[in-house]
């Protein structure tokens, strides 16, 4: 091949071909440019690391009572955020509460994802009566806005953190079901799905091998927002006395207990409130950026 060798006479190695970037790599590239979102992500990572590793590093027990050192103002006697009515360190309890909030939040989102995702997948893929019946069941959630469905479920199950997990998880099912169903409806008519079917792939294989990867993007987005909602709902239910029970260090419960001391110890109410706010705000900002990064077309004007 003289011609070619003449052209490539220069034997220096060619620059590496840029690997065709996959959709997630491109999304991450877009996400990285959003400075607010990167800040939020860093803050969230910090929160997660402190919540999960903190208790392993710090030797002091967040349940350790010290009645002589109760209701100390922030900064007193080495308690950075003060102590509560039992003399327990507020900062340590907040850290412990972060672990509770995140665990319950993630578990609740997993429940919504597993059940809602399957419902959406089946409804979208099989269509017809399966779709109609499944979606009518989902519609009933419409009648129970906000925290109401969780209240109903907690009424049936009784109070406690595990039950809140289930209740909040069930409350999130419709959102996942709808989004997954929508994506499946959009995708199942694609040529590659038809090709898979024509070589004899089973329904199960088409659904889980060929369709699931397609719905992953929107699922990640609503999963992120779902986590924010779950953290908020968990704290709300605990605040109402239906979630975590004393002496658990849970943010909503801490705020609820702080009400009795609001006139003498503002820090008991302010810091747990800030913690919930910060956690939820952070996750919401990340969710906004994830949505924009995964599907730039969805960006509304100026957002």
């Amino acid at each position: 091949m003289p011609l070619v060798s003449a052209v490539v006479a220069d034997r220096r190695p060619l620059p590496a071909l840029p690997r065709p970037a996959g959709p997630y790599r491109r999304a991450w590239w877009r996400f990285r440019r959003d400075r607010l979102a990167m800040g939020a992500l860093a803050l969230f990572a910090l929160l997660a690391v402190v919540s999960f590793l903190g208790p392993l590093v710090i030797a002091i027990d967040p349940y350790q009572q010290d009645l002589r050192g109760s209701l100390l103002a922030p900064g007193d006697a080495g308690h950075l955020l003060g102590t509560d009515n039992f003399g327990r360190d507020v900062l340590l309890r907040l850290v412990d509460g972060g672990r509770v909030s995140m665990t319950v939040g993630l578990a609740a989102v997993s429940v919504s994802l597993a059940i809602g995702g399957l419902i959406g997948l089946f409804a979208g893929y099989f269509g017809g009566w399966t779709d109609r019946i499944l979606m009518r069941i989902i519609d009933v959630k419409l009648a129970f806005p906000g925290i109401l469905l969780a209240l109903v479920i907690v009424t049936v199950l009784g109070s406690g953190l595990e039950k809140v997990m289930i209740a909040v998880g069930i409350g999130g099912i419709p959102r996942f079901a709808r989004v997954v169903r929508g994506s499946v409806l959009n995708t199942k008519g694609e040529l590659y799905v038809e090709a898979a079917r024509s070589i004899g792939a089973s329904d199960r294989r088409i659904m889980f091998v060929h369709l699931v990867p397609q719905v992953l993007g929107p699922v990640i987005t609503i999963g992120t927002f779902g986590l924010a909602t779950a953290i908020l709902s968990t704290a709300s239910l605990s605040f109402l006395g239906l979630g975590a029970q004393p002496p658990t260090a849970e943010w909503g419960l801490m705020l609820s207990e702080a009400r009795r001391f609001i006139r003498i110890a503002w820090w008991l109410a302010v810091f747990p409130g800030l913690a919930i706010m910060l956690a939820v705000l952070t996750v919401n900002v990340i969710g906004d950026a994830v949505r924009d990064a995964l599907d730039p077309r969805l960006q509304t004007a100026g957002d």
Partner: peptide, 8 residues
């Protein structure tokens, strides 16, 4: 949407 009503 981020500040829980009870904290607020």
């Amino acid at each position: 949407v981020s500040i829980p009503s009870f904290a607020f």
